[in-house]
């Protein structure tokens, strides 16, 4: 089905369901561009003042601050964040991923939360998507973390062509691909 987005002319999470670039950059959940170039770092895409703060205590490096007012937006200190990924599965909003832009000469890696079955397996080729669920490129699964601590939120790590670094946020549910092929 082609998605008609004409009715969603107004930008922003309250209209399209997904935060706009502006909202994301204003929210304080991103490290500086320069820091993003330097190594793995968290991307927090939580742009509304909801009462929530588990990300703050999840980070052993104190890189995330919400503060005493739990509706304040989580602020990322890119200098403290080492990109360990411990905050990813803790966030009930599934709003955090970690990207390593220059994982290799040619590839970026992303670690994102994933709560669907079947889980992908290490080595699988998957379709990686942007915030609208549109496929951007293919990627290869490097790891699937399902520790007890993650409490049934898997963290999938995948690598993909660096050219698509800024767009990729998640992966397409494999079963929807199968259904489309079957149609």
């Amino acid at each position: 089905m082609t998605i008609d987005r004409t009715q969603n002319e107004r930008e922003g999470v309250a209209y399209t369901g997904t935060p706009s670039e502006q909202e994301l950059h204003d929210s304080g959940g991103y490290a500086t561009q320069e820091r993003q170039e330097r190594g793995p770092v968290a991307f927090i895409e939580c742009v509304e003042c909801i009462p929530c703060n588990p990300c703050e205590s999840a980070c052993p490096y104190h890189a995330i601050t919400v503060g005493p007012d739990i509706t304040a937006l989580p602020q990322l200190d890119g200098e403290k964040c080492i990109g360990c990924g411990l905050c990813i599965a803790v966030c009930p909003g599934l709003a955090i991923y970690v990207k390593s832009k220059h994982h290799s000469e040619t590839h970026t890696t992303i670690s994102f939360p994933y709560e669907y079955v079947p889980l992908p397996s290490k080595g699988d080729t998957v379709n990686l998507t942007d915030r609208n669920g549109d496929v951007v490129c293919q990627g290869r699964v490097l790891n699937v973390f399902t520790s007890r601590r993650n409490d049934r939120t898997a963290v999938v790590q995948a690598e993909f062509d660096k050219r698509y670094c800024s767009e990729v946020v998640s992966m397409k549910l494999p079963r929807s691909d199968e259904r489309e092929r079957g149609r």
Binding site: N8, R10, A14, Y15, G17, P92, G93, T129, G133
Partner: peptide, 25 residues
């Protein structure tokens, strides 16, 4: 309504799974 009602983190989750939203519909 012309805008969505749920928390943005919830809407973003279904949006990136490819679900379209139709506001004012």
């Amino acid at each position: 309504a012309p805008s969505l009602g749920g928390y943005g983190v919830h809407t973003a989750k279904v949006r990136r799974a490819g679900v379209p939203f139709y506001t004012s519909h």
